[in-house]
Each structure stands twice: as structure tokens, then as C-alpha cells.
Design a protein around this nucleic acid. Sequence first.
DNA 1: TTTT
DNA 2: TTTT
Lengths: 173, 173, 173, 173
Amino acid sequence: MINRVVLVGRLTKDPELKYTPNGIAVATFTLAVNRQFSNPQGEREADFLNIVVWRKAAENVANFLKKGSLAGVDGRIQVRTYEQDGRRQYFTEIVADTVQFLEPKGSSGSGGGNGGGRSNDFYGAPPREPQGSSYGGGNQNQRQNSNQGFTRVDDDPFAGSGQIDISDDDLPF
Amino acid sequence: MINRVVLVGRLTKDPELKYTPNGIAVATFTLAVNRQFSNPQGEREADFLNIVVWRKAAENVANFLKKGSLAGVDGRIQVRTYEQDGRRQYFTEIVADTVQFLEPKGSSGSGGGNGGGRSNDFYGAPPREPQGSSYGGGNQNQRQNSNQGFTRVDDDPFAGSGQIDISDDDLPF
Amino acid sequence: MINRVVLVGRLTKDPELKYTPNGIAVATFTLAVNRQFSNPQGEREADFLNIVVWRKAAENVANFLKKGSLAGVDGRIQVRTYEQDGRRQYFTEIVADTVQFLEPKGSSGSGGGNGGGRSNDFYGAPPREPQGSSYGGGNQNQRQNSNQGFTRVDDDPFAGSGQIDISDDDLPF
Amino acid sequence: MINRVVLVGRLTKDPELKYTPNGIAVATFTLAVNRQFSNPQGEREADFLNIVVWRKAAENVANFLKKGSLAGVDGRIQVRTYEQDGRRQYFTEIVADTVQFLEPKGSSGSGGGNGGGRSNDFYGAPPREPQGSSYGGGNQNQRQNSNQGFTRVDDDPFAGSGQIDISDDDLPF
DNA sequence: TTTT
DNA sequence: TTTT
């Protein structure tokens, strides 16, 4: 059924890149999307939305976006459910089909030096592609390539660490 | 900033209509939106999304939609935050600008008999209209017009009851 | 770049199904989308939008939708340009990723008897899939299976007939 | 009925600001939206889409956007029809509810010097507001304020000139 | 007629 | 050229 979301906002932190046990890249980040109107106190609030993106687009996100970057997201809303202290919890996220980098002029100033400059799109999560092992587990993320290597992701790409060993079949793609 | 959501799905229950202390109508319902692909177990899962709609559209929703109705929603995602047992909780909802009734042929079978038949739209939450007292608190909802009268809504239209007395200024419009 | 369109409306005629020389299915139809407000003469106008959908979804569209069907479309806008009498002409169409059949209750009454009943989605135009010869040219359209066989489509799926022999490379996918 | 479009692209020229006989501002521009994939010749094509925006947002567009600006648009597709040499012609445009200025860092380099810097939204075309004469005809456009004054718009905001005298009632709002 |  |  139709489930379409389009957002433009700024990353609240650097994106996190992880890999599934099968070597599929997944990036997560939070997008701050300013509200249309200020609240009665005159403050312009924002909604903080959790974004997930898979495969090649995940690696592009990790390479080209960072805290503060302006980005567009085209995807779908999804609610994940989990138990915590015996209570059912809900986690709402946007699964991005496309992430667009929106920093037009050799911006990004300080920091990582992603070069960049052109407005650019990353297309992720192609619907139901063969889930081959084409992602061999090699970490192509340029920014997190120091000591820690990459992180494995299991069922929850937003989780801090994932030790439980599950297969790709449990992943939502 | 751009924040746009379009959904088509079915109501999991009859919508709930409430009124703010100032007499502004607000309806809430949950929309079940089937996922594109079935999970590895071959089941077609759904996402259950919380929808809010204000003013005249809220009353139309209450009058014309019910459990099982197919509906389209055009709106924006919003995250509300609240404390519970000292823990910060997040509640994600879609604030609908438009709700479209999608039951083309004199459907709705049993129950309320809303007659209907035509595909119909309800436009809600016009951005920043004067928040006059045009909604005098009279309950125009035909389906919930029995004994219980209408319910007051305070800061959380999804809450079961709201006793705290807040003004319209605390409402997100 | 972000280019997203979501529509709900009714088919003004039965969809047309054609096949490229390489056997790829493409369906076209016009969707009447009623405007939000009536014009000063009190009439509720509609916009008539050209929709294209490829591959399996095209065949589903041809099999399950017909004149008057309520349908949802999720896709992108595209402008094609062509010459006519030495004048440059523009043709705007929506390339659908998904077409959703929105006739909830064993509707469609008279006519083709598509059975159906459930709300259903067709996913078309997967971005950049290998354009294999999986569509062998066999016409699986149940409604147009009489004498005329299928129609070849060349560069313009909306054109009445296409005699010029061009390859898949000229097609927009 | 649901009719929603979200675009991100660049202006091909400076926007044009006009005023209706009743003094309502309307801006038009063309947005170049790059396609997702390059064509078989390896070129990245674009779609050129006509955007219209009304009232205050129109004036903001005229003041803050110019040729080459990156902008987001949230609106609806509309088809206008007209006669030319006895032939019916169609003109497809996007009526913007919101235009978002997407040049994050004091960009816009040469030229008008709009200062700016912050990502900014303009909300136009509020649905069915009272069509009063609140726009008194004063031209607030800073960039086109030289000799030519403002231009009147009649039925077609994209037309070069409009001599026919029509009332606001013929305008699509 | 097109933008970076 | 248009749908309910």
C-alpha cells in the first residue's frame, strides 16, 4: 500500500555505518526537520526522525554526510516493535530509498574534508534485489576506517551493539 | 522544511473524536498500511501508524470512517515527547492535512450505515488559520452521540483521558 | 534529485498494454484526479494525468484496472519532448513505481469480471534492473487477448501506433 | 483527491513575479530536476518543471531565489488547457504550497546579494483563504523594482504578457 | 528556451 | 478525448 515520505533536514550527528553478518551495509542517522510554524513561545521546533538506508547508499551516506549536513530523504515509514522490561515498545523510522546530499557549494568547511560540492543522490534499498553476498564485508567507509573496524548490525540498526547472531533472513529486505 | 507523508491503509478501529477546551475538534485513528513485501515467513506485515486530524476534517472522519475503512492520508510526521516513569518517551504521529475516504461503491456494509458511496476528501488543519471559537463545543459526531458526549483533549489527542487544564496555546496549531 | 508524486484518482478509460520490441510490458492510462475545491462556477474540476508503468506492474494494471477504477500511483514526473510540424512539444507523464488497486469490496460489478476484491499493489519500474529477456513477448493481458495480439511500443508508450524500429536503449529505463 | 508532488532542483532562470488585477502576487519559475539515471549516451538528463506559487510565498521566491538556486517544492500537479491555432494544448504545472530555499551557507555568490544563508521555507497558496484585496498591488519584489514596475497576470501566470481583462474569479484559487 |  |  502507498507509504511515502519525503523529508529535508539536517543530520544531528555523523551517520553510523554498520554491516550485517552477511556484509550488507546499513547506515542510520537522525534528521532534524524544522517545523513550519514556531510554537506559542516563539520557538521554531524540529522533529527528529530516524533514518535507515541500506547497501551502496549507506556507504555513500557515511562518506559524504556528517553532522549538520543538509539532506533530502525519500522513503517509507516503518514501525519496529520490541520488548523492554516486559513492555512492548515502538520504534518509528524512515527507510530511505534515496538520500540526496544538499550542500551545493564546496561546503562542509572544516572537518572530514569530503571534498564534494555537487548536489548528489544516493539510491538505496532497491526493492527485493537478490540478496547476494556482493557486499563482502569490506569496510569502504572512509571516515570510520581507523582502529575500530566496522560494526555488525543485527536486527536493530539503531542499537549500540548487537551480539545476538541472526541471519539476513531476519532483516527487513 | 519539507516534511510530507502520503499513506493509504485501513483503520484498525473506529476513529476517536474529541474536543479541546476551546471547542476545536480533533480526531485520531490508527491506519494499518500493508508492507510491500512479505517477510521471510511469508507473512504480509503492516505498519500501524497514528493519525491526527483537526477541525472540520476531524468531524468528517468521525462521521464517515470506521474500523476497516480504506483511507488516504496526506500530512506530515511529528514526534511528540513525554515523560513516563522518569523516562523520556517518543510518540510518532502523522498530522493529516487531508483524509480521503476510499470506499467507492456504496460500501461500508454493516454497521453505522453512512450511506456514502462517493470517494470523498476532508481537508483538515489549514496552516495557521485564526483559531477562533467557531467550534463551539457542540458535538457533531453522529456516531458517538449517545450518552457519553464528547471527550476533552488536552495535549495528547491519543491519550485516554486528559484532566490537566491547558489552553489552546499549548496545542500544535 | 528528489522527484516524487503520489496520486489517487480514477481511470478515464481502460489501460493500454503494449510491449517493446524486446518484450518488455508497458501500460499507460489517464488518471482523473479531482481538485480540492470547486471552481467559481461551482463545478468540481479534475486534472487528467498521464501514467506509464513498466514490466510486471504493467500487466497487472492491464488485468485488474479498467475505466472508472479507483487507483493510487506512486512515481515521478517526467517531461518528454518531441517535434510536431517543426514545433517543439512537451508531454508530461508520471512514471509509476507502484500502482495500487483501490476497489475494496468485490467491486467492478459488470464487465470484465476481474474477480479481485482485495486492495492490491503492483510494483513497477524497479530502478535499473537488468533488462533481461524475461518478458518473452507473450501477451499475458487477459482482457486484450482476442485477435489483435499485443502492440509494439517504441519511444512513446502513449502513441497510437509505433512502426519505427528502435532498440531498448531508446527507452527511458 | 490525493495529488502530492515533492521536488528538489535548481531554477533555470530568475523567477518571474506578477500581480493579478486584484493585487495578488504570483511567481513562476522552472525547476531543473536531474534524473536518477543517465541515459544510454551516458548523459544525466533533467526534467524541467513549471512551478507557480501565490501570495506572500511568491514574493519571498522573487526576493530570495534566482537562476541556479537549489530549491525544494511541495505542491500539487495541475493541467491547464488552452486553445492555440484551433488546437487544444495542455500545460502542466506544479502549484506549490511550500517552496524551500536550500542554499545553506551564505551562498548565492555574485549578483543580487540576498544575504541569506539559512535554509528557509515559504508557504504559499493557503487553501481557500478569503480572497480579499489584502495585497494592495504594491510591488515588494526587491529585484524587479526598477523601471518596469510589476506585471499583471491574468489567466496564465506563465504567459509573457496578459492583456485580456479577467477577474480574480478566473484564477485557480 | 533551460540548472549544477 | 476524459473518471465517480
